[in-house]
């Protein structure tokens, strides 16, 4: 069996080397900590400000998770609806596109007025959802439309209902597409949650987006980097979790997830 260790060891070694180089160059060039914190400063800030960073992390995770779940459910549900009715697709798809292409920065003030300044958390979820949902919709719709037409004909031959065709052929065919959409959407939900905080604030709670905003205002660059590091770790964790789900659902049958010899 071929050894798989380089796949895991090489990136760790490269990452560690990059951190060391970063630490050394900042010291060697005498760069001010106000401009660029060293990895050791960031680690110290992470420990020292954990009482602020930990609830901020949980808050951002909560907004991200809610937006992601809503994006996945709405994306797949709308895609199913569109796949069942051309008329509904023609009628509603343009709205989805408009929502996708309109910058959330421009929508945020309106949402704050409509949903209310007392409900900033809901505004954040809606903004993150707007950023995250289109990719699920688009991928799911492509997947539902890519189902093998001969297979669908076969089901019709055996008298299958629309629901049976959807459940037995179209949704399983679309699953790899939906999961790809969800993997992208997970990252977008996080980006959306942070961007939403930048443009709409974070109400009574404090998310990582606001921590970064406040830290940079206070010239606490190390804390801003610590919050940024937590965002990166959160993003990687989301991607990893969704990759595991994808593997679990596809590894027996789909080419993208099948492990090959050689």
């Amino acid at each position: 069996m071929k050894s798989n260790w380089p796949r895991y060891v090489v990136p760790v070694v490269v990452f560690a080397a990059a951190l060391l180089l970063w630490e050394w160059r900042v010291h060697a060039l005498g760069i001010s900590p106000l401009i660029l914190a060293t990895p050791s400063d960031i680690w110290t800030a992470l420990i020292a400000h954990w009482d602020v960073l930990q609830p901020a992390l949980l808050f951002t995770l909560k907004i991200t998770a809610e937006a992601f779940v809503l994006a996945s459910v709405a994306g797949v549900a709308l895609a199913v609806l569109f796949s069942q009715s051309r008329i509904v697709e023609y009628a509603l798809y343009p709205f989805a596109v408009v929502l996708q292409v309109t910058p959330v920065v421009a929508i945020a003030p309106l949402l704050l007025i409509w949903i209310g300044y007392d409900n900033v958390n809901e505004v954040l979820v809606v903004l993150a959802w707007i950023i995250a949902f289109f990719t699920v919709l688009s991928n799911a719709l492509t997947g539902l439309k890519s189902a093998d037409h001969n297979l669908i004909d076969l089901l019709k031959l055996y008298g299958a209902s629309r629901w049976q065709i959807l459940w037995r052929v179209q949704l399983p065919s679309a699953l790899p597409f939906i999961l790809t959409g969800m993997k992208i959407s997970g990252g977008l939900a996080l980006i959306g949650a942070v961007t939403a905080e930048f443009v709409a604030g974070s109400g009574n709670d404090l998310g990582l987006g606001w921590v970064i905003t406040l830290s940079t205002r206070n010239l606490d660059t190390a804390q801003a980097f610590a919050a940024l590091a937590l965002l990166s770790i959160l993003g990687i964790a989301i991607l990893f979790a969704l990759t595991v789900v994808e593997w679990a659902l596809l590894h027996r049958w789909h080419e993208s997830a099948v492990k090959r010899e050689g």
């Binding site: 001969n150 037995r168 052929v169 699953l175 049958w253």
Partner: peptide
């Protein structure tokens, strides 16, 4: 029976 096996890969 179609020209392709037309099986459900899942």
């Amino acid at each position: 029976v179609f020209q392709e096996p037309t099986l459900m890969p899942w």
